[in-house]
Design a protein around this nucleic acid. Structure first.
Lengths: 249, 249
DNA sequence: GCATCGAATTGATCGAGATCAAGGCCGCGC
DNA sequence: GCGCGGCCTTGATCTCGATCAATTCGATGC
């Protein structure tokens, strides 16, 4: 169900990367026909192979971007959070969406129709440059994903993922996992079992995981594990049983 | 060494996807300051982390796009052939290149400066839409790579790669590998040894490989191997020794 | 011609991660 | 309360692909 954007929605949308550097009035003009969509868990926002008529901005919640293969199972391509935009590029081509977007939890999404935006671009080309900048960011992220899948071990990808959740520069930090471990596993190209064992190995490096709560003793060390050559890491990490401080009661 | 574009260069460049749908005079205007660069094997076209001041079009030869990790080794991200463009998106952002481009063989590349192109866009915004369409294609390709790395086995990726080399709709076909097997292995996220064994397994499915010459008995069957669930394929393919018809003399 | 070097294949072995199976925990509905 | 189902973990086993090593082949240089 679509509805008009609230003031709060505008707060989020106008601050988003896609519109970075644009004048406030330009943004106002762009999002004039935009609507907000409220979604329950597992509801779809866009569907792979449907004609691309709009792009989207996450206002609140988490969105899973995935591709379904002919054989039925799905491959997670990316996870989008509040303030992220997706499907910008394809919306301008008139082609079809190349992936499906699904709400993970209760989610609010802004929908920006492409046809109107194309007209805006013809009026002020700077919009296009802002869009390209945003798309370039997405490409960078995809390139990094390819690199990680080809060059890192599973444990290293998990380390990288955890490190990316923290804003801390150095030292100790606490954080919480943003969604199900099953989803995290899918995002990292692992099975849930392997993710579990990767966490166990990282315990030896000072990473404690209790349900969704994570504490990292030394974030620099974690980043070093992620950055090292995959063979350097080999053997240095062994699975560790739960220590006393980590037991649930 | 840069030089002016020849008539032959223009033939290639004006037909490229980036400029699809643009008027001939518009394209002429865009590529006015463009130059052509001739490269020997292993020479670099752009370097990861250098400021992005231009984007490129391959006029002839093969270009390897890769990222170097801190630990020194490189990860192949993509291979570009005649008519492909790369680094469009980042060239507009003023950021730095996120990967390195290296000539695989003797290669000719067109270099299109970004600053001039940005001025062109301000004059006629349709250029931006054409660029976004091209960038969207690149994203599609990256998304597919992520999907393949996460969901396919090595043999399936090899099958997919071979199938993508053929234009044939069905039946028998012959083709030649476009570059070194070491490079193919890197592109598919395999070691050369594993690629070799994957080829051996595909022999059982009617794929014969002799140096760079490949013959496929049934291209549909090959595509089916690539598309199937990775568990369905399991066990159905075993390594096969060279048969009489496949021996070099 | 011969030596050399790198590409490619093949064999033997190892290890990371998948799979299969079982069990605990928690939230949910009845 | 109780039962059920999904998430998560752990154990046992298997498989794929990596690694290490040896060899062949072909291209290149002297």
């Amino acid at each position: 169900m679509s509805s008009k954007l609230t003031a709060g929605d505008l707060q989020v949308i106008t601050r988003v990367a896609v519109f970075r550097g644009l004048k406030s009035e330009t943004v106002q003009h762009i999002i004039e026909p935009a609507t907000a969509v409220m979604l329950r868990p597992h509801e779809l926002i866009m569907r792979q192979d449907d004609p691309a008529t709009a792009f989207f901005i996450v206002i609140d919640g988490w969105v899973k971007i995935y591709r379904s293969t002919v054989s039925g199972d799905e491959t997670v391509i990316d996870m989008m959070k509040k303030g992220d935009s997706f499907a910008e590029a394809v919306a301008f081509t008139g082609n079809r969406y190349i992936a499906t977007a699904e709400a993970v939890n209760t989610t609010r999404v802004g929908r920006i129709p492409a046809d109107h935006l194309i007209r805006c671009i013809r009026g002020s080309p700077d919009i296009a440059l802002a869009m390209i900048a945003s798309i370039s960011q997405h490409m960078h992220h995809l390139v990094q994903q390819v690199e990680h899948l080809k060059a890192q071990s599973g444990v290293q990808r998990v380390a990288e993922f955890l490190a990316s959740l923290s804003l801390a520069e150095q030292g100790h930090c606490a954080l919480s996992l943003p969604y199900d471990k099953i989803l995290i596993a899918g995002q990292l190209g692992l099975t849930p079992e392997s993710l579990s064992r990767a966490f166990a190995k990282l315990r030896g490096a000072g990473v404690m995981i209790n349900a969704s709560q994570v504490t990292v003793k030394d974030i620099v060390k974690l980043r070093r594990i992620a950055a090292e050559d995959r063979n350097t890491v080999r053997g240095t990490l062994r699975p560790m049983p739960l220590s006393a401080g980590n037991v649930r009661h």
